[in-house]
């Protein structure tokens, strides 16, 4: 099914696309049909710079298990960094 559900957050950081690095403004997250991954459904993340147009996008399509493992890895990495990761926007 097409879930129609999209989670969205503003982000601070950069992503690398086919034309090099660019500033990121937002990330959108949704569980739906993938465009490319050989899965019926996938957890999809788009890292974008909304001001720069739709072509400025770094996209990933992950199996649900992969997405959960990634969440755990991110949490683990942030926890290991301790106070370094507690500053405003990583500064």
């Amino acid at each position: 099914m097409c879930t129609y559900v999209t989670e969205r957050t503003s982000v601070v950081g950069s992503g690398k696309g086919p034309e090099g690095w660019f500033r990121l403004s937002h990330a959108t997250v949704y569980f739906d049909h993938p465009f490319h991954a050989p899965l019926e459904h996938s957890l999809n993340i788009d890292f974008v710079d909304e001001q720069a147009g739709p072509g400025k996008r770094v996209a990933v399509e992950l199996s649900p298990a992969s997405a959960r493992a990634l969440v755990a890895c991110i949490e683990a990495a942030l926890a290991a960094a301790g106070p370094l990761a507690d500053g405003a926007e990583g500064s």
Partner: peptide, 13 residues
């Protein structure tokens, strides 16, 4: 002028 998958992602967002 974007690829259709990028346009779809922007539409969804």
């Amino acid at each position: 002028d974007a690829s259709p998958d990028d346009a779809a992602a922007a539409s969804r967002a």
